[in-house]
Amino acid sequence: MLLLVVSAVTFAIFFLVPRIGGQTVDQLAVQYVGKDANPESVAAVKKNLGLDQPLLVQYYDFVKAIVVGANYQFGPDPVTCNAPCFGYSFKTHVEVWPEITQRIPVTLSLAVGAAVLWLVSGVTIGVISALKRGSIVDRLSMTVALLGVSLPIFFTGLLGLALFTSQWPIWDTIEFVPFSESPGEWAWNLLLPWASLAFLYSALYARLTRAGMLETMSEDYIRTARAKGLRESKVVTKHGLRAALTPIVTIFGMDFGLMLGGAVLTESVFSFQGMGAYAVQAVRESDLPIVMGVTLTAAFFIVFCNLIVDLVYAAIDPRVRYS
């Protein structure tokens, strides 16, 4: 199943991405040649890059490169692209995969921290809201949640930056510090991006959790749990929240997968060199191998996260396991 989806995605990326903008093969080749394109050099590039081959052969080469690497006849010297070869950028003359792996830690740090923050805060707020339904706390947090859902990250992020780097400078500048270098600096610099992302997402999760909790807390088995004399905290966490978790896990898998593919806006706002920023840059420069490579990586993350979600399902809802 996983393999099938990944193959389908690869296929789609391969066929669709080069056609965006309606370029013909010739125009594509012209781009690779650069300024002094003449019919001979264009033909040579087409031949060397296999652009004159039938599409299926090109696709085979594309996939083969991912598995075993490839050599491209480009210019005077052949260039080597080691496996897994997610493409070779003929504009910047770099292999795409090492570039991606270099940027994954940035995106991963951003995604993991923000996800932890928004899950914890969103679910907590949602539970409290559901239990205190109709109270001031409920109304206040749902209003804030609505704000969070409505405000885009380039507003909250920039506002955060403006407030905490110039108005009340808690941070001088915000830049990515690798975890391996200094975990403290890593977390400290990521705090604001995490918070802005979490504000956006936890709002969604708070609403989702609240709706789920309102539903499960009126179930008969909650009454049974109370009839046993269990403490209310146990009734809520062990019986109520447990059963309300399924939709949250579903959405979380999607969101987290998407985020691993690059939080484009957040990375731009905070000038982080993550996958998203890389993709944007590549699109701007029409650097197709990079676009394809990043898209493929992002697609893989989404598929992977959904696989994890399916596994988690089985763990939290036993009814899924047998049906």
Partner: peptide, 9 residues
């Protein structure tokens, strides 16, 4: 059926 929690053994 509804009096037992479906997701707890």
């Amino acid at each position: 059926l509804s009096s037992l929690n479906p997701v707890v053994p």
